[in-house]
């Protein structure tokens, strides 16, 4: 079985895996990072979204071999110690989650949306860009509010840096 090496949440990770191993399987089964979820088998739901080199990617749609050498960030890797990422904090403050199953993927997608569109991103853009993330619980109302709130916070944080 081929060996694969990559960085996950800033730490080196490696393993001997079958060629067909998906990135999400590697994260969940080999590294025990079970915050990244699997909600479908057709690349539709977005429960599995992680960042590869800073961009949101559905980890069920990538072989771990394709991520060799890359920097992968998962939901477990975005808080700084006890300090939540502004997107995490905004989801909690705006009740942007119920069962929590879609939440890691939502947060990872949402961070990418704000990174690309900036802090002034509007509701229509957020709704449009969340097309690849399905939530069955919240009706999206509070997810959209969370993302807009976080966008504001991230803008302020960036300005301060």
């Amino acid at each position: 079985m081929p060996a694969v090496k990559l960085m996950v949440n800033g730490k080196p990770a490696s393993g001997d895996v079958e060629d067909r191993t998906l990135l999400v399987q590697f994260l969940r089964d080999h590294l025990g990072l079970t915050g990244t979820h699997v909600g479908c088998d057709t690349s539709q739901c977005g429960a599995c979204v992680v960042h590869i080199d800073g961009r949101a990617v559905k980890s069920c749609t990538v072989l771990v071999g394709q991520a060799a050498g890359a920097n992968v960030t998962t939901i477990e890797g975005i808080a700084r110690g006890d300090e939540l990422h502004p997107m995490q904090a905004a989801f909690r403050d705006n009740h942007g989650l119920q069962c929590g199953f879609c939440t890691p993927g939502m947060i990872m997608s949402a961070i990418d949306i704000v990174n690309r569109h900036g802090g002034s991103v509007d509701e229509a853009t957020v709704r449009h860009e969340l097309e690849g993330n399905i939530c069955r619980c919240t009706g999206y109302h509070n997810i959209v509010r969370s993302v807009l709130d976080a966008a504001g916070r991230m803008k302020v944080a960036q300005a301060a840096e």
Binding site: T34, G35, E76, A79, Q88, F91, R92, G100, F101, P104
Partner: peptide, 14 residues
Amino acid sequence: DKRFITGSGRYTDD
């Protein structure tokens, strides 16, 4: 919420 937003929820498949 804290466990869900940090990826530490514990669902059956986990």
